[in-house]
Each structure stands twice: as structure tokens, then as C-alpha cells.
Nucleic acid binder design. Sequence first.
DNA 1: TTGCTCCTCACGTCACGTGAGGTGGC
DNA 2: TTGCTCCTCACGTCACGTGAGGTGGC
Lengths: 280, 280
Amino acid sequence: MFRIGEFARLGAVSVRSLRHYHEIGLLVPAEIDPTTGYRAYAAAQLTSLNRIVALKDLGFSLEQIQHVVCDVTLDELRGMLILRRAQIAEDLAVQHDRLAQVEARLRSIEKEGDMPRDDIVIKRLRAQRVAVIGSPAPGFGPKNLAPILTPALQRLAEILRTRDVEIVGNAFGYYEGDPDSGTLVAYIALPIGPAEVALPDPAQIVDLSEVEEAVSVVTAGATEDGFPLIYADLARWIDAHDYEIAGHGRDVFLNTSLPETDEDLVIEIQWPVRKVGRPI
Amino acid sequence: MFRIGEFARLGAVSVRSLRHYHEIGLLVPAEIDPTTGYRAYAAAQLTSLNRIVALKDLGFSLEQIQHVVCDVTLDELRGMLILRRAQIAEDLAVQHDRLAQVEARLRSIEKEGDMPRDDIVIKRLRAQRVAVIGSPAPGFGPKNLAPILTPALQRLAEILRTRDVEIVGNAFGYYEGDPDSGTLVAYIALPIGPAEVALPDPAQIVDLSEVEEAVSVVTAGATEDGFPLIYADLARWIDAHDYEIAGHGRDVFLNTSLPETDEDLVIEIQWPVRKVGRPI
DNA sequence: TTGCTCCTCACGTCACGTGAGGTGGC
DNA sequence: TTGCTCCTCACGTCACGTGAGGTGGC
């Protein structure tokens, strides 16, 4: 029989851990002195302790270990191991990704010598029903789009107001076609509730489907000249993180009321992306 | 300005997270209604939120993020990233190892169709001072060793008793040479304190150095026939976990008093190992 | 008697999730 | 007035680490 300190040394665990295992009933000392409360462990219990440590090394929780050491069939154990394998593999993937991201940032610091952009994230865009007005546009950028989207937004808002349709989110622009072939169409969209309504031309109802992954960056008070820089940063980020652009983006106007100055203009740029090499 | 729910949706985080970030001062709402306590976030604050989310994705703690977003020089940031990279790499190595272990167990189940041994662990053996008596031995196994070690242990204990040397651990056997060439020497050892003492022949004082990694398994009540099976299990485990044997092992007698029956015999088998491919 | 070991609370960790119980705004 | 959103506590999570304050054993 060993006192707790000696048993802990033999098993290479802390005394506190042994007390904890006792507390939760995972490893109860062979004897407990009724007057002093001193715990005494039998030599053979080191086998149990080893088993606990071994399972902990596999990443099992104490609760799972409890289950394994008590009564588990071979099939159950196999199931647990398969589950564990999947979890570890997922965790590995996450960490692998993180490592790549940290390294990308470090490279960016070494090369550019200044703070890398750390305000770009990946997020999911929910499916939503929107009211839209589409208009042909000569190209991207606020200079091309503002004169088209601003009146369209006012008109769309007016239409929705007269029909009593509730607006449930921020206005955003989205795009189809491309400027080089002269087929670019700019849509201004306003999220609305799921109720069925009919809208007069040129307004339409569109159900946008979910976008699983989109890069998102928010610009506050950016001027006309600022946008190409942001686009370049986004493109570099996408490249450095092994994504590729998967369709036209959206520009979400976070200040719904029309801005007084550039300072007030807050836009979230959302570009759908996918991991390089992953099929659509 | 957005109410907390809308802002949470825009940032793809939970309302509770925003409250938590407020609580710790990481992201304070632009305005708080003094009467209702309602939080209001400015559109431009989405940039801050994105930054927080991006840094969290790298695995930084909120405290570290606090530091980064407040005031951090490029060099400090670089330092943090380098540290983070090292931590992730270490974590990756651990998970990689775990995955290999889980897979080894699964293979073992598939092949053998029964419970794999889950009571084998790797531990460090501390450096320690021992009193020993060495004797030539014909081979390994209890049959060969017991007749040699048992009287040697009694003699050694007697010597220590007469010299008033304190025994601070369990007796164990360790070995040098090998049986094939007839050079095997079996030592019985008793851990003693660090004080300088002289012992009469055949007892000696030896300072055993630390063994960084040793596999450890505890056998309780194993009979003569049981040992070859355990050795086979150990060898399989070592192989499956990409270790190799790195020297003679030790047999630690966990029941210090001489056993009455085989049932009472509890031995911890310790074999020094090293990862395959890692130099000594 | 002096160290050393042991004991039992009980708080702290980290980033929130999850009620409980109550109120504001349309 | 009815939902919906918001508010503030406050406990729970996981496996212990780390004192505080006190006692047993050689």
C-alpha cells in the first residue's frame, strides 16, 4: 500500500489529480483511514492509473474514460475510437489552417514591413429573400455604381413603403455579368420577410441562396481612391489563404440612411470564395 | 447604429459573445442607453469585431487580442505570431501523435479482435541514487532471476539496516550485458537518499541517470507463463507507436515485502525507449 | 518538537452557453 | 395587448492548480 504522494510519484501524476480521480469515482483508493482520511493505494491499482493516463493521452475526457474502464464492449470501444479519430482529424485540420494563416501573416510582415490587414474574415451569408432593382452598369467602383444604385435604392424603398413590405436588413448591391463584355448588371437589394408579395416593375423579388464562404471586410470612410487598395488587399488575402474567388461579391451599405459625407460611408465588402482545389 | 442582435448577425457572432466582449472591455458599444441599458453599435465597429474574430481564428486568447488591438508595435506583433506559430506546431505534433495512437488501437482491434492493452504508458524515470548488489545471471525471466535477486535483496536490505541508511523507494532489478554471451549481470537496487555513505562489498552505491522515456506496464499476479505474453505485448506496443528499445529495462517490485503467493506479486516493467529515427 | 505529508474546503481558469426573472418598444 | 428583443445576474463547463487553514506520523 502506498500513500498518495508515493503513488503519485510512481504513476507520474499529481497528487491533486489522484484526489480528483477519487472525487469523481474514477480511481478510488483501496483503503481510506476512517479517522485521518488518509488515502492508501494498492500496488495493483497502478495498472488502473496507467490505463487512465493512457486513455487521457488519447484525448478522452475523464467521463469517457470512466465509461471505458467500467464496462465497455469491444464494439463500443471501437465506436469511441472512430469518433475520436474523426475529432482529432478535424482538430488537425483546424490547426493546420491556423498555422498556414499565422505563417502567411509573418511573411506579410517580413515582406511589406507593416501591419498586415487583420480585419478580414470568412463568414457564411445566409439565404434570404430580397426585393431588387437591376440596372445596367458600365463597371465596378463607387464612381460607376453610385449614380446607378442611389436612385434605384430610393425608388425601391419607395415601392416597398407603398406596399407595406417590411425591410429586415441593410441594403446591398450585387452584380451579374461582367463589364468587359458590357453585360454587367448592378442590382440594389433590400432584404424583406418571407411573405409572398408582388412588386411592380422594375422591382422584383429574388430568393438568394446561401453562400457558404465569403470573405468580409468593412470599410469606414473610404474615399474613391481607397477602394482599389482594399480590393488589392482582399485579393492578396484570398491568395495567401488558399482561397479563390467564386462569383461576384456584394457591397452591403451598413449606414442605411444616405451618407452626408464619405466619413459616414460604411460598406461591408463580401466576396464569395472557395478553398483552392475544392470543387463547387 | 445597430442593436445588439442585428450587430451580432452582421458579425456572425453570438449576442452573448458581444456582451462578453463589452464586459471585458474588448469591444464597447458606441452608445448605451442610460435608462434601458440597451447597447448600440456603430456600423464602423464591425471592423473592430472582424478584427477580433480574425485574431480569434488564429487561436489568440481574448486577452492577447485586447493587447493587439489596443497598442502593439510591429515587432511585438511579430513576436506574438512567432510564439503562436510554435504553439500551434507543438499542438499539431501532439494531435498527430494521438491520431497515430488511435489508429494503432483501431488496427489492433481489427486484427486481433479483442481489447488492445490500454495500460501501457510512457513515463520519465528520474535520476536517483541506489544501493545495489550485482550478480551474474543465466538469463531473463522470474525463473532465472528470482533465485538470484531474492537473496541479494535480503542481504542488501540487511546491510542498509546496519548502516542506518534510509530506503526511499521500491526495490528494483536492472541488468547489464546479455545472456547470449554469458555476460548478463543482474542488479538488485534500493533507492537511498543523496547522503554520502560507504557500503561494504558486495554492495555498492550507484547514481543512475535519468531515463527520458520508458514504457511502463504493471503486472499484478502474473505467473511465470504470463511474462512472455507481456513482453510480446510490450514489444508490439513499442513497434506500433514508433518507438524502439533503448537499453535494458528495470523490474520494480511494488510489493516491497516478499510476496506470499503469485497473487501478491506486483511488478512494474520499465523499458527505456526512444522514438524511431531520433538520435540518442 | 520540527519538518514533511496528508486532509478538506473553495476559488480561479477560459470564453462563453444557458436559463431565470424582469423590462422596453413596436 | 402580444411577441420579440433586450437587460442583468449567476451557475455550469473541464481537469485540475493553487492557496488557506489545519492535522497526523516519524
